[in-house]
């Protein structure tokens, strides 16, 4: 019981510290903000650990964070192999192909207004559909290895990026386009110099949505058949063996991979769209 009450005490103390930090104006600085968020995260872990130890929760129901960390440390080679199979081969290659295809399609749609009026409503509709449902079909077509996972990711990523980029290509103002034509800029010139840069904030929005979808697609597709390596495979088999610490270790990998991909996109966004009001300091 002492564990549980100790954890609750820690939670109260950390919360008080956070309240004080906000009052003192530490939140104005980036370091202060980071510290507050980190302290909250640590608090969650401590309460979790205290709960598991205090009530002696069985590890097949909820393993403690320390147990997960230990499992993570001892099974690094397995986790790395799964990471390469699912994230690098499945999700990232599919992500690249899907984004590339969406980019080309968006420019084609933008060039021909007829396509715009025809494809865009359909694209909008498809973007809202549960495309993960295609996973079993694509696994049937492309086999159990990473190719089928990449195919699922391509389709899942394609529509959000397409819809956002097409919206972005229309984001320029009449004045700006007129200015380009007074300089007698050709279609390609005004596309590269004006409209693509103006579309970038929308494009990155689509990329952020797509980054989460890519990992979801790659993992779900593995539930329908996979070689004996991969995060989805490991999760479904370890759940069957009640090896929940391994499942949580995979979830940590998934969270790290997802956050890293999102962080990379956010970093690129700051570099590319530095001129946008939301990015100015």
């Amino acid at each position: 019981m002492i564990w549980f009450w100790g954890a609750l005490g820690f939670w109260a103390a950390a919360w008080a510290a956070n309240v004080a930090a906000v009052r003192l104006g530490l939140a104005q600085h980036r370091v202060g903000r980071l510290g507050i968020a980190l302290l909250f995260g640590v608090t969650l872990l401590v309460v979790w650990e205290g709960y598991v130890r205090g009530f002696q929760v069985s590890p097949v129901i909820l393993p403690a964070p320390t147990a997960i960390a230990a499992k993570f440390a001892t099974s690094l080679p397995t986790l790395w192999a799964d990471f390469v199979q699912t994230v690098v081969k499945g999700a990232l290659s599919g992500f690249a192909i899907g984004v590339g295809a969406a980019f080309v399609t968006a420019i084609a749609i933008d060039r021909f207004p007829f396509l715009q009026r025809g494809l865009l409503p359909i694209g909008n509709f498809v973007a809202a559909l549960p495309i993960v449902g295609l996973a079993p079909i694509l696994v049937m077509w492309f086999g159990f290895d990473w190719h089928s996972k990449a195919a699922v990711v391509v389709i899942m990523v394609f529509f959000p990026v397409l819809v956002n980029l097409v919206a972005g290509l229309q984001a320029t103002e009449r004045m700006q386009r007129d200015l380009m034509s007074t300089w007698s800029a050709s279609y390609v010139q005004s596309l590269i110099k004006l409209r693509l840069p103006a579309a970038m904030p929308f494009f990155f929005n689509g990329l952020k949505i797509a980054s989460t979808l890519a990992l979801i697609g790659a993992i779900v597709a593995e539930f329908f058949g996979s070689p004996i390596v991969g995060m989805g495979f490991r999760i479904s088999t370890e759940v069957g063996r009640l090896g929940l610490d391994m499942v949580w270790a995979e979830i940590v990998v998934a969270a790290l991979a997802g956050s890293a991909l999102y962080g990379l996109i956010a970093f690129l966004e700051r570099r590319v769209t530095f001129w946008h009001p939301s990015q100015r300091q």
Binding site: N18, A21, V22, A27, R33, I36, A37, L39, F40, G41, L44, S211, T212, L215, I216, I219, V220, F223, M231, G232, I235, S236, V239, L244, V247, W248, E250, I251, A254, A255, G258, S259, L261, Y262
Partner: peptide, 23 residues
């Protein structure tokens, strides 16, 4: 300050990884 960053991070976790376990 405390919750918002974690809410964002929560969405980068592929939830399907949790699905079999939640069951």
């Amino acid at each position: 300050m405390s919750v918002m960053p974690w809410a964002i991070i929560s969405q980068t976790i592929p939830i399907v990884a949790l699905a079999p376990m939640i069951l």
